[in-house]
């Protein structure tokens, strides 16, 4: 499929607020990206007209229950068939920040045995507590399954900002070692928080900004076609969005976040 034929659906609802910059990132790469209200999608029932689905950041439905929980239940009540068909066809689904929370609440991630009936992990309130907006470093851990990081060499370090108050990735305590082993074994681990030079944060603040278990910042499903991450790659797309650009003699044209969008587009052009 040619780039300009690719259609990306960016799904929003009251409280979604990172849709415009996410749409801009895709458009910059020459694909069609449309922002659609869930009411509109529920009416049109045309999810399969799109090749990729994105849940952008924000506070869907105000996150008044648990971040992402209401939108996840709303979608599974109204659009479950379409979403399952989308997943079965290995069409990529990306969840950024609140979108990641939605994917976990829906049971799409980590999805050890496929789509789960209940959340298998959670994104709990940060430790230290409270909202935190800062640039952090991520180490690419995926061995090749994740289609969202094909352009990011394993072991490389990316710089991308986080901004959330509920991003602490957790498994049930009694199962965490077992599930972590599964995560690694099945190549579901994608990003871990690390230092500038690439040493794992080992839970230490602020390199690990929220206290996530095993410094986990982003994971994918078994097929590598569903990916969720707390950091915001759309805010690290252009060079001038970076926090230290005024220090550089010569800046690269783009920020590290662009690699994630490029990986998706690359996958789509090859798949369709």
């Amino acid at each position: 499929m040619k780039r300009e034929e690719i259609r990306v659906c960016i799904l929003r609802v009251g409280g979604t607020n990172c849709d415009a910059e996410t749409q801009r990132a895709f458009q910059e790469l020459g694909v069609q990206a449309e922002t659609l209200h869930v009411n509109e999608l529920a009416k049109r029932r045309n999810l399969l007209d799109y090749q990729a689905l994105v849940f952008p950041g924000g506070f869907s439905f105000g996150d008044y229950v648990r971040a992402g929980a209401i939108l996840a239940r709303w979608l599974s009540a109204k659009l479950d068939n379409e979403i399952r068909a989308f997943v079965d066809d290995n069409r990529p689904i990306l969840g950024i920040c609140n979108g990641f929370q939605v994917l976990v609440e829906y049971g799409l991630l980590p999805g050890f045995e496929g789509i789960s009936e209940y959340p298998e992990a959670t994104l709990a309130a940060n430790i230290p507590q409270g909202y935190n907006c800062r640039w952090i470093y991520l180490k690419q851990e995926n061995r090749g399954k994740c289609v969202f990081t094909s352009k990011v060499p394993a072991g490389s370090v990316l710089r991308i900002p986080v901004a959330h108050s509920e991003g602490r990735f957790l498994f049930p305590r009694e199962k965490q070692q077992k599930l972590l082993a599964q995560l690694v074994e099945n190549d579901l681990l994608v990003f871990r928080y690390c230092s500038k030079s690439g040493e794992y944060a080992e839970g230490k603040y602020p390199a690990n900004p929220n206290g996530s278990f095993h410094d986990i910042a982003g994971i994918c499903n078994r097929e590598g076609t569903i990916f969720g991450l707390m950091p915001h790659p759309e805010r690290a797309f252009y060079w001038w969005q970076q926090p230290d650009w005024t220090r550089q003699e010569r800046m690269p044209q783009y920020g590290d976040g662009k690699l994630i969008f490029e990986s998706i587009v690359d996958y789509l052009t090859k798949k369709f």
Binding site: C18, E21, Y131, P161, R235
Partner: peptide
């Protein structure tokens, strides 16, 4: 604690 990056 204020998001100063949203909207990119």
């Amino acid at each position: 604690t204020y998001d100063h990056e949203v909207k990119g």
